[in-house]
Design a protein around this nucleic acid. Structure first.
Lengths: 316, 316
DNA sequence: GCATTCACATAAGCTATACTTAAGTGACCA
DNA sequence: TGGTCACTTAAGTATAGCTTATGTGAATGC
């Protein structure tokens, strides 16, 4: 990378001016006088050999050259600022920003938040419930909990020791009405499309096939998020095929029951991700250890299950 | 965007040092003395409040804070440099960098290159044959020719006045052997998967359906790039369903013939894309006008075709 | 084992970059 | 027509960023 860039302060001045479309506003943002900003722009124009702003009576507008570089300059300075904030965050051992999918956030993290705060009062947890995330540094995230088959290239990736199985869950009242797997033919079955992307599908069809029941349910409420499907089951709407991570707390607390211990194992695990080298920061260590102990606490539920890989029950 | 960034020269020094993992090399890159670079890093560390490099005997290594910001700094400065080059390119009216898909590049642009050079000796054309392209500015591209249904948000988009139809093409010798559409049942049919993504498919099945021939060919050589399919047809391998843009030059020159004038219209057009505001740059105007006249030159071939939308011949 | 070398740190001093204040220009507006 | 607004220009100044020169500590070589 050669250093054929003009003075960086001139670029920063241009960026601010282009964003505000005003030298005066840009000068204010940078805490300098309008005169200083005017000189910076002029210097930039001398380096480039052409105008970047067209000066109008009471306004300025970008020239073609200015338009060509404005978006890149804005993007570049944003990236630099994000990188700087990332460095600053490494000094802060009292906050921890975690991202996870909506279902994991709502059904696994949120109900346990109080316990984490008890165990680590010095750490302030922040959440970002989204599936879209590409760059931990850029988005100011310390830890990401992810499900599925990602590449995890260039980041620290730790698979959580908890296979994600699915099995029918319902309220205790509902369980009384449907005493056998076969009786589920008459139940309202709730569909969770959130794991439809899994290659050997772990859905109702597969589950009934595992049970040796010739039944391929079609009708029933569908939800794109796993936590919504479970909320429906909790409300007594019907029987859901619940994912371990999403239902385990409700099973542990007795709000839901899994009367049939036959579970389909998806073979996929959640991964604990953070930037390389960040895995030994105190909050991150504390958070990971806490997740592991929380998983261990519900191990007895998984142990009761008869788990078989969903790949064993595919048609053909 | 507040200006809570440390001095930019210090960031640039850090970026160079992190990329080279050496203060001395970084100093060389920036054309300053190692002492200057050492001061810059020190100043950065004072701003941050912690070390960014750990000084070893004969080397340096990044601390956690340094690792946190190094990738972002590299990315940010690259982005700034790309934006600056984009501005410089607007001053250069003698080169024009064009990107297009491999097939369009090979079969439309390349055979006409000489003519463009004749018409515009002052413009140096450069090509980048790829389908993967997101950012014109970042990748140093002036013009992109794209096919399909893109959003074209934030860029200047001009649909080229040439509907992309497909029809059977073959060598003249081959045409003698297969005098009727129905006789194609016995021909080697070449499959082009490059437009398999089209929603009303424009493939052999659809074409035979249009011709009222009950024939759904399965076997035959398949190519993922349209130009390879046409190359096979040119070599006498068989009959290809050729896309207008890819075969029109060979049809015009007589290397291929289209004995059956029934063509399926995909309803999709190529678009001519450039950055907003760049559409009046002289090379870009010249290039666009030249493309339009070249299209007009082969209008007589299209006019001979009986074109019908592929959506008219879908099953069900 | 001692001198050499290599890579970075530090000191002292200089220069030019980036800033300030103050005055100027031209266009819009009341 | 005078006031205001937004940017420009001029002149002067402070300091950021650079240089040369010297210092430090740990590998390397003889």
């Amino acid at each position: 990378m050669p250093d054929r860039l003009p003075p960086l302060t001139a670029l920063r001045a241009f960026d601010a001016a282009a964003r505000h479309m005003s030298f005066a506003k840009a000068a204010e943002e940078l805490h300098v006088t309008p005169a200083a900003l005017s000189f910076q722009i002029k210097s930039l124009e001398e380096h480039l050999g052409t105008q970047v702003f067209r000066r109008l009576n009471r306004a300025v507008e970008l020239t073609e050259a200015g338009r060509a570089m404005a978006p890149g300059m804005a993007d570049g300075f944003q990236t630099l600022a994000a990188a700087w904030r990332a460095a600053e965050r490494t000094l802060d051992n009292e906050t921890l920003t975690v991202t996870a999918g909506p279902a994991f956030t709502a059904k696994w993290l949120a109900p346990r938040l109080y316990e984490f705060a008890q165990a680590h009062p010095e750490i302030e947890l922040r959440f970002s419930a989204t599936l879209k995330l590409v760059d931990l540094t850029r988005d100011g995230i310390d830890v990401a909990i992810r499900f599925g088959t990602g590449t995890d290239e260039g980041v620290y990736s730790y698979p959580l020791p908890a296979d994600e199985w699915v099995c029918p869950v319902m309220t205790p009242e509902m369980a009384a009405r449907f005493p056998t797997p076969d009786s589920l033919r008459d139940a309202t079955l709730i569909f969770d499309d959130s794991i439809a992307f899994l290659k050997p599908p772990a859905n109702w069809d597969t589950w009934f096939r595992m049970m040796g029941i010739d039944f391929a349910p079609k009708a029933g409420p569908r939800f794109s998020q796993a936590d919504h499907a479970i909320d429906a089951a909790l409300a007594g709407v019907g029987v859901a095929l619940g994912r371990r991570s999403v239902v385990i707390k409700d099973l542990d607390d007795g709000r839901l029951v899994a009367p049939f211990p036959n579970a389909l194992d998806t073979g996929v695990r959640f991964r604990f991700l953070c930037n390389k080298g960040a895995e030994m920061r105190p909050q991150i260590v504390a958070f990971r250890d806490w997740i592991l102990t929380e998983i261990a606490k519900t191990e007895h539920i998984t142990d009761r299950m008869i788990r078989k890989p969903s790949s064993d029950f595919q048609p053909e």
